[in-house]
Structure formats: structure tokens, C-alpha cells
Write a protein that binds this DNA or RNA. Sequence first.
RNA 1: GCGCCAAUAGCUCAAUUGGAUAGAGCACCUGACUUCGGAUCAGGCGGUUAAGAGUUCGAGUCUCUUUUGGCGCACCA
Length: 542
Amino acid sequence: MKYYLYSLFKNAAANLEYLKDINITFEVPKIGSHGDLSSNAAMLLTKKLKRKPREIAEEIITKLEIDPKIIEKVEIAGPGFINFFFTKSFITEITKDVLALTDNYGKSNKYAGKRANVEFVSANPTGPLTVGHGRNAVFGDTLANMLEWIGYSVDREYYFNNAGRQMRVLGDSVRLRYFELLGQNVEFPQDYYQGEYIKDIAKSLLDEHGNKLLNEPAEGAFKEKAESEIFKDIKKSLGRLGIIHKTFFNENSLYEEGKIREVLDAFKEKNLSYEKEGAVWLKLTELGNEQDKVIVKSTGEPTYRLPDIAYHTNKFKRGYDLMIDIFGSDHNATYPDVLAGLKALGYDSEKVKVLIHQFVTIMEGGEVVKMSTRKANYITLDELVDEVGSDVVRYFFNMRDISTHMNFDLAVAKKQSDENPVFYLQYAHARICSVLKMIEKEELKASTENLDLLVTNEEQQLLRKIHTFREEVLVSAELHESHRICSYLEELAAAFHKFYTFCRILGTEKKLAEARVALAMATKIVLKNGLSILGVTAPERM
RNA sequence: GCGCCAAUAGCUCAAUUGGAUAGAGCACCUGACUUCGGAUCAGGCGGUUAAGAGUUCGAGUCUCUUUUGGCGCACCA
């Protein structure tokens, strides 16, 4: 629908110069009586032209070459909106497109040929993934799906660090548990990793090596075993949600390949770093940030900023047009430094988008559960998937804008599972499948011969919803907001259920019945496609 | 103290990014098929969009102040 209007206005702009000065947009009005699409162009021009908006709207309309087969009515309303009413036959035509394109209906090629990298999860291998990681994981994967739907070629990436203090503590935690298993009396420090999984790792080391590891340093076999076991579990947890990363990028490789050194030299060369008190500082104040920050400690170890910058230069060199980083809100203070550093090195930091999601507050029985991997008082992503299943987890985390703080009451999530909107959508899909089976028995088929018969309010509303799917996917992907897909699908399912209640298929005249079958099939396709973007299944039976 | 994010119906959240009468679900109250799945549908109740000021044709949305909450504020990552 929009594409038609865009071309109309483009042609009109040849006669009306001022139309070229503004960004023409069309919106679906909230109220049905305001038409199918609406433009506020006249109001935007009021100031510039110093004329009344309704008068301008009047003039614009006279210049539009409207095809009466497509547009039934154009009117000026309110302060100066131009409302367009499409003909019913134009609305019903979409059914043909959907049935022809099936799994591809909703895809667009606006970004075809572009490459994107989505970095998400990126938890260091110190323990199982928590519910908090779940939001990051699900959102990242869904965003990657959405980008693919608008034409991007997308790589999913996981960045991790297996060096440093936290990994030493991890290795030593395993070592101490190993000693315990050998019957030694050890004191287990409070700030070590308390989780049961540490004991499991120690146990498997004992099974493999007996007591031969008594003199092994914490950073040797203990750390290595811990890392490999934990990573195995992390990949398994992600796999249960259908998430597979193409690349696991090890921070350490940046050191081994001298990339850290390169970045450091580049800063020095551009005179953007200086030494003070034995450390190397980056002149962030000259780059517009609040204060200078240390990039190499006086001990000679870099801070996180340096590898992060080096990591992103690596991404740039791999030729991505869009690089997305997904972080929890605890990282909110770090990325401006990294972006400023990249910009200073001559990279187009606009290509890097940092998306910060707010934390998930876990409630259990009305009480807030504090989360810490170290203290082991967290709820794992696996436990959550065990309780409610992958579909609900994926839908739940996608349902809401990532910038909102989210309350996740475990008791409610478990108990209320059949009140979750995901079942509403899946039910609509299963219902259609069931109807289609019935149709076969009655020797009816889908037909697009007589779509003009679909004139009731319920049919038209459903068709309109189907019309906007492609646009909705495009906008959601561009805004990086997966919750819009959820809202869309809930509205689509509602429109279908309403259609289903008011427009019967069996027992109606054959031509109309077959047109309705076609509409039901089209709805099924859109539902399934939308759910697949979210990574949620579309079952034929429930 | 400083920075980032937020505050919308009793609860959980939307609102086409500045548009027309702020919408859904849950909860509560009424109703609806003797053939396609009632996990559904129709209707009702419920709002000073935290408070105050400003910007303009027009503000939940932008700006400022205040209040409340989350997350940060290391030569940790």
C-alpha cells in the first residue's frame, strides 16, 4: 500500500516543488474511519509556506494522479491530514502475493548485499548461563533473524575472554574441590565459585586422572577442564533455544597476533596517548568524552578498552556494513570510550550499534532473587527452559522493549504458561491447520478466483493486517526492536480469531468458501513466518 | 556526588519515533455456537501518562527542574 503512495507523491513532486523539501511518510491511523493510510505532509509544510494546512492538502490532492481501481477515496481531515481509502479489491489482492511467496512473504531486499555482524551473549566461561543471559541471547538471535529478513547476510558472534583473574579463580575453585574429593580438608574461600557445577568438573577430573593432579597448578588442567566443560554446557543451553554462533572469538588471539600492540602504536603515532604514573592513558577528553582513561596499567597489562578497540578494528577489517553489540546495562559506561577510540583511529563508528538491554529482575514468590554467578544463587537458563520450554522463553524475552526493566516472576511464569500470548498465536495457527484438514474432506480448495467476495469487515481487517507485514518486519529490523513483531502477531491472530467466529467456511456458498480458505491459508503463512523470525514454532496441533 | 536507563489502567506491558478519541493481556462484571478447535468471540469497569514548567498547528513521546527505582562510576571485564 505504501509503495503505491510513495510513487504517487514522487510523481506529484514534479509539479509541486515544495514536496521535495519534506520527508513524506504514511501512517496507519489508529482509528478505522480515518482511512487505511494517512499523510501529515500538509502540516509539515505549514510553517515553511505560511499557508493553512488544509489549503495545502487541497492543492496536493489535485496533483495526485489517483487510480480509482486502487484508491477509493481521499479526504482531508482534522488539522490537515490527508487520508487515503483503498478499494476492497486492492486489499484482497494481497492474498495472491502471500500464497505465491509462502515462506518468503515478508522478506525484502532493501539491504541485499550488505553484511552484518551481531555479537551477543559473550559471557565468559565461568559458569552456566543465567536467565539474564537468556534475554541477551534470545534478543540477539532474533535481531539477527530480522536483519536476514531485510536482506543482510548476518554472522552471529560470541566474544570471550579465557584469561585474567576470574579464570584463575575458577581454576583454583576446581582445584580445591578436587582436593576435597580426595579427602583433604580444605578451606574454600567465600569469593570463589560456589556452584555445584564446580564439583562436577572436579569429579570428572578425578575419574579421568585419579590423584595424579595433586601438583598441577590451578591454571593448568583445572582451568582448561573447567573452561571446556563450561563452554560445552553454554553451547548446549543455547542450542536448546535454537541459537548457534558462527564464530567464537577469543580475546587472547588479539594478543597473540599483535593486534593490541598495533592499536597502541596507532594511538601513540596520532599523539592520542601519553604516559603518567607508569600507565598509558588515552586522551579521551580530546575526543569529546568526560575524562582520560587508562589503556595500559602500570603492571603492563592492558585494560578492557584496548582489546575491545582492537576487537572492533578486526571487525571493520572483516568488511561488515553493520556491527551490533548487545550488552547488559552493567556495560553502559564502557562503550563510549571504545567508540571514541575507534573514531580516532579513522573508523566510521556509526557502523557500530551498541544495544543495551536492561536487567531482568527475577522474582520468586514476590521476593527479588539477587543474581551472582560467583555465589551460585542464580537461576540458570536451562532451568527456565526446563520449566516453560523454548517457545515461551523466546517469546517472553522478545515481547518487551529491551530498554524496559523486566520483572520475571518464576512462580507466575510457570503457573501462567497457558495464559501466555504465545499460546494465543500458536492456537490460531493450529486452528487454521485443523480447518484446512476439514476442507480437504469436504472437497473444497483454496481459490483466488473470487477474492472480491471478501467484503465483510472481519475479512477486510484481516487482509489489511496481512498487507502490513512486510513493512512491519522492515521497520522492526531497522529500529532493532523485536517486540514489535510480537505486537503485530498478536493483532494478526486477534483479527483471525474474529474472522473465524464471524465468517464460516463450511456451509457457505462454494465460491465464497474457497476465497475464505485462501485467506485462511494466507494467514497461516504470515503467522508461521512471523513466529519463525522470533524463533518460535508454529505447531499444527496443540 | 556524577553518568546511563526507566516511571503510562489494580498488575504486566503497547502506543507506527512529534499526530487525530492513550491501547492490549491479566484480574473483576455481563453475554455468545446443538456443524469448521470455547486455549475463542462480543460488551462493561478501569487514566490528571510520577510532579511542575517550557518548545508548536499538535507532547506519553522533545527540553529543563524535582521525586522514585534499576545499572554503572577502578590502573576489574
